Amino acid sequence: MPELRAALAVVALATALPLVSAPSAVADPEMVAVVLAGLPGYPDHVTGLNDLGQVVGSAQGPDAPPRAVLWSPRGGATDLGPGLAVEVDRHGQVLGIETRTATAPYRNKPWIWSAGTRTVVAPNTAWASAPAMNGHGAVPVRYSTSLFRQEHNRVGVWEDGRLTELSLSGPDLWVYGINDAGVVVGGYAAFATQDFAAVRCVDGACTRLGDSPGYGTYTPEGITEAGVVFGNRGTVAVRWEGVEATVLSENGRVAHGEQAFNERGDAVGWAADESGTPHAVLWPAEGKQVDLGVPAPAEAVAINERGDVVGWTAADESSTPRAFLWRAGRVTYLDPPTGHHSLPVAINDRGVVVGHTTGADSTNKATLWTPVPTTH
Rank of each mutant, 00 (worst) to 15 (best):
L36N: 05
S21R: 15
A68P: 04
E299R: 15
S58N: 10
L147V: 02
R107C: 10
A16P: 08
G135C: 06
P66S: 13
P373C: 04
W127T: 14
T246K: 12
D316Y: 09
A323T: 08
H340L: 12
S58D: 11
N50I: 03
T357L: 06
V86F: 07
G135S: 04
R264M: 02
C206I: 07
A130T: 12
I178R: 03
G170P: 09
G307L: 10
Q93F: 11
G41N: 05
R200L: 12
T119H: 09
P297S: 06
E30D: 14
G96D: 07
G38Y: 05
L52G: 11
H279K: 08
D316F: 05
A77D: 00
L163V: 10
V281Q: 08
L39V: 07
A181N: 07
E250T: 15
L13G: 05
P18E: 11
R239P: 03
V184K: 00
V155H: 10
W71L: 02
V56S: 02
N153L: 05
P40D: 15
S318W: 00
V345F: 12
W326A: 13
S72T: 13
L39S: 10
V309K: 06
T363K: 12
G61T: 00
D28R: 04
N232E: 14
A226M: 04
